[in-house]
Design a protein around this nucleic acid. Structure first.
Length: 481
RNA sequence: GGCGACUUAGCCAAGUGGUAAGGCAGCGGUCUGCAAAACCGCGAUCCCGGGUUCGAUUCCCGGAGUCGCCUCCA
């Protein structure tokens, strides 16, 4: 089955590019570290993780690089206001970012190069572009002359003549005064006297432009032509358009074979963005009792990555229910499979084995179809419902349960939240002596028929995060939020 | 003003030229001392109006609404 992905460059589904040799080269635009990442940002990184996991689950080796923008106008301004050095100012945000990714079970990139560590190669790229005659310098800053790159605007589908200065209403008009053309962009920016950091260059002290950073790092860490480049839709223009212009003007060869962009997270009818002040961070959701794995599940299954996802806090509760059900079925199947013993039959003879195979295939097909996780998850839920029914009726055995567990494990190679959630629910984990005692006392109360006391104790335990289930084999407990 | 996208049940959402997955919530039932968990059952004139077609939610045109980008943005 071919894995097909939407390519922004062609606006169509195309097979994922195959590297001629070595791993697939994947570049993802990382965070600008002057604040906490919000769950809109994190949606993109989780979607990219899904992409990478699916590639790797299909046996495709990947080399993944994510840059960290640790110098730009805002960072310099905030660092100055905070009275700290650039490095001291950005360090906590870099750390927090890695913490967020780790709690979301995002597979780490192979490298997280920082802009400030690539100043020399960036200057070198400016030099190359100068040699190509596509730049001009004004007052210690160097600009890219967009007219010199005829393909400009192709990625964004923009007619350069139609670009309107300040059309977004976000940019101060005098930013443009020194440029030959509003659409030209800065490669190297002259330092201001009050900047807390600047670097020497042939053009005087200054700092690199944002776009230059990604071109330089992608080419230095990966290659002059990379296979896949990802980011949020807001980066299509101008950031990625400019990356293409710079890189291709310098090398004369294609910069990126396939572009993938993720849609925004919407909140109350607008995109989640720092400038709108409608941010929600992972830490905030955790403080409200949400598990990061639930957030991951929500972000992945809530909507296809190329569709806007409308976030509402109460949707997280629904995601928690849904994920808990997947995890519960996984636990059930794993336990039955484990207890199966040598007498267990063949999966092929077990009706649950057939369902498991179907579910696994449907899920993979959905993922192959432009990472359709919401479509694929339906297959997993069908397996849960049908599997539970067979097990309830005693029509499936350990072999079928093992197959179902394996199928869910394959799904979870991508989702990466089912098994960890199941582990959190495990009822053989450590139990506090208090909880243990309450459970024992409730059992005693039940045996003597004192159901009022038993129910009170059950409520007490629930408040401790312990839910009880009275089953024919005895009372079991699990942890709940 | 230019460009692009979206509109499917209370909510979140897949998908298809032959009358529509899944999840959450809700209601009823089985099971249970009662619950919980699990299972069973119940819900959609697919934004509106034209057109093409034997047939359109799906393709085309128009309209309405919403959102995004137009040099800070995931």
């Amino acid at each position: 089955m071919t894995f097909r992905l939407h390519n922004t460059l062609t606006r169509s589904l195309e097979p994922v590019p195959t590297p001629e040799s070595g791993p697939l080269l994947l570049y993802t635009c990382g965070p600008t570290v002057h604040g906490r990442a919000h769950i809109g940002n994190l949606r993109t990184f989780v979607a990219e993780d899904c992409l990478r996991r699916h590639l790797e689950s299909k046996g495709q080796a990947v080399r993944h690089v994510m840059n960290i923008t640790d110098v730009d106008d805002k960072i310099l301004a905030k660092a100055r206001d905070a009275g700290s050095s650039l490095a001291a100012f950005t360090a906590p945000f870099v750390e927090a970012f890695h913490g967020d990714l780790a709690r979301l079970n995002v597979r780490p990139a192979h490298a997280y190069p920082r802009a400030t560590a690539y100043i020399e190669p960036m200057i070198e790229l400016v030099r190359r572009l100068q040699g190509r005659g596509v730049t001009y310098a004004v007052d210690g800053s160097v600009y890219f002359r967009v007219d010199a790159f005829p393909a400009y605007g192709r990625l964004a589908g923009l007619d350069v003549a139609g670009l309107r200065a300040g059309g977004s209403g976000r940019v101060d008009a005098d930013e443009y005064e020194v440029k030959e053309h509003v659409r030209d962009f800065v490669l190297w920016k002259a330092a201001h006297p009050q900047d807390v950091a600047s670097w020497p260059s042939p053009y005087g002290r200054g700092r690199p432009g944002w776009h230059l950073e990604c071109s330089t790092i992608a080419m230095a860490e990966l290659a002059e032509t990379i296979d896949l480049h990802c980011g949020g839709v807001d980066l299509i223009f101008p950031h990625h358009e400019n990356e293409i212009a710079q890189s291709e003007a310098a090398t004369g060869r294609p910069f990126v074979r396939h572009w993938l962009h993720t849609e925004h997270l919407q909140v109350a009818g607008a995109k989640m963005a720092k400038s709108l002040g409608n941010l929600v961070t992972l830490s905030e959701l955790e403080a409200q009792g949400a598990d990061p794995l639930t957030v991951r599940f929500y972000l992945l299954t809530g909507a296809h990555y190329r569709k806007k996802l409308h976030f509402r806090a109460q949707d997280l509760a629904g995601a928690q229910e849904a994920l808990g059900r997947l995890a519960g079925f996984w636990r059930r199947c794993a336990a039955i499979a484990q207890a199966g013993g040598p007498a267990q039959g063949q999966a092929a003879d077990d009706p649950l084995g057939g369902l498991a195979a179907t579910a696994r295939q449907r899920f993979e097909q959905a993922l192959d179809d432009d990472l359709d996780v919401p479509g694929g998850i339906a297959a997993a839920f069908d397996l849960v419902r049908d599997g539970n029914r067979l097990l309830d009726r005693g029509e499936a055995g350990p072999a079928g349960a093992a197959a179902a567990a394996a199928a869910l494990a394959a799904v979870d190679d991508i989702l990466a939240c089912i098994r960890p959630t199941a582990d959190q629910q495990l009822d053989d984990g450590p139990l506090t002596p208090t909880a243990r005692e309450l459970i024992d006392r409730r059992e005693a109360a039940r045996r003597r028929g004192d159901y009022a006391a038993a129910d009170r104790l059950r409520v007490e335990l629930r408040a401790l995060g312990i839910a009880l289930e009275d089953q024919p084999q005895g009372t079991r407990w699990r942890r709940v939020g």
